[in-house]
Design a protein around this nucleic acid. Structure first.
Lengths: 188, 188
DNA sequence: GTCTATAATTTGATAGAC
DNA sequence: GTCTATCAAATTATAGAC
C-alpha cells in the first residue's frame, strides 16, 4: 500500500529545479510551483519554509546526484578522455532532451542576487566537481608528471568550456553545438 | 553650457547594465533603478516604456560597444593568439575590477524566462562575437587551411571557455581563475 | 522631463481550520 | 499534510499635473 501523496516534497523539488534551470532563481514563484504540482502555495511552504530553503535544497540535491552519477574518478582515469567524456555526457542529456543547462551554472550567473545559502550551494557544486576532475587527472598516465598548477588549469579549462558551451548552445537554440565541443575538450 | 540633467537616459542604462550583470534580468526593478539614479520610477518609464525595452536597449548597447572595442579582426590576426588575447582582455577588465561577468552571458543563463526581444538581443551578441572570431581565425597563417567545421569548433571552444570561465571565477570569488585560463586558450 | 498618485497584479509568507 | 483566507510588500505600468 503506497503512501497516497507522499512524494509531494520531491515533486516540488523536481519542478523547482526545472524552473530554475530554465528561468533562473528569480524566475519562478511558489504559486507557480504549487499550481504545477497541484497543491496550494501554503503547502509548498509546509515543506520549505522560505524560498531560500527550497533553492538551497534543490541545489544540494542536484550536486549530490551529479557527483554520484560521476562515480569514482579513479575508476575511469586510465586516460583523461574518459573523465572528460563522462562529464560531457552527464551534462549533454538534459541539454538535448529538455534544453536545460546545469542548475548551478544558472545560479552562478545571478550569484550576487541570491540568498547567501543558495549562493553557497552553487559554489559548492564547482568546488566538488573541480575536486573530482583534479583527482582523476592526477591519476592519469601523464597527469602524474604535471604540476599542481597545471592540473588546476586543465580542470578549470574543461569545466569552463562545458558550462560556457551549455550556455551558448541553449541561447542559440542549437543543442548540437555542445556536441561539437566534445573533440575539442580532450586534445590538450 | 552643458545640458542640466540630459544624461539621465544613459545613467539609467548604466545602472541597469550593472544590476543585470550582477543579479540577472529578473533581479532588478524600475524602482531600484530610479532610486539609484535619483529620479522616480515613472521617469524611467518615460525613457523606456517597458522593462523589456530597457533590457533590450541595454543588451544592444553592450554588444555594439563590445564589438567596437574589438575592432577589425583582420588587423590583429597574424596569429590566433592576438585574437584570443583581445577577447580575453575585453572580458577581464569588468571581472577583476567589479566582479561583473558578460552581460549577455548572464542573460543567456535565464534565456527562457526573458521577454523575446531581450532573448533575441542576447542571442545576437553570440552571433556577432562568433562571426568576429571566425573571420579572424580564417585569416591566420594556418587558419586558411582549416575546414569550416574546424573553424566553427575552435571559435565556439574559445567563447565557451571565456563565458564559462567568467561564470566560475565569479561564483568562486576568485577573479584570478579567469587569468589562469589565458595560456590554456591559445594552445590548440 | 519630472513629479504625485494610484491602479492592477504578483510575490513571499503566516494563521488557523480540518 | 492540505486547505482557506489573508497580509504586507513589491512589481510593472499608467494618468495627469507642473
Amino acid at each position: 500500500m503506497p503512501k497516497p501523496h507522499a512524494e509531494t516534497e520531491s515533486r516540488i523539488m523536481d519542478l523547482a529545479e526545472n524552473m530554475i534551470r530554465r528561468n533562473g532563481y528569480n524566475g519562478f514563484s511558489f504559486r507557480e510551483i504549487a499550481a504545477g504540482v497541484g497543491v496550494k502555495s501554503s503547502s509548498v511552504h509546509y515543506y520549505f519554509p522560505t524560498k531560500a530553503d527550497l533553492g538551497a535544497c534543490v541545489a544540494r540535491r542536484y550536486t549530490d546526484r551529479f557527483l554520484d552519477a560521476l562515480g569514482d574518478p579513479e575508476d575511469s582515469s586510465e586516460d583523461a578522455q574518459h573523465l572528460v567524456s563522462k562529464l560531457h555526457g552527464e551534462f549533454a542529456r538534459a541539454l538535448s532532451s529538455d534544453g536545460q543547462m546545469c542548475l548551478c551554472g544558472v545560479l552562478a550567473a545571478e550569484v550576487t542576487g541570491l540568498p547567501e545559502t543558495v549562493a553557497e550551494e552553487a559554489k559548492g557544486f564547482f568546488d566538488r566537481t573541480d575536486a573530482w576532475l583534479q583527482k582523476g587527472l592526477k591519476k592519469t598516465a601523464w597527469g602524474g608528471r604535471l604540476s599542481a598548477e597545471e592540473i588546476e588549469r586543465q580542470s578549470l579549462a574543461v569545466l569552463a568550456q562545458l558550462e560556457g558551451g551549455m550556455l551558448i548552445a541553449r541561447v542559440q537554440d542549437r543543442p548540437a553545438l555542445f556536441d561539437l565541443l566534445k573533440p575539442q575538450l580532450s586534445d590538450k
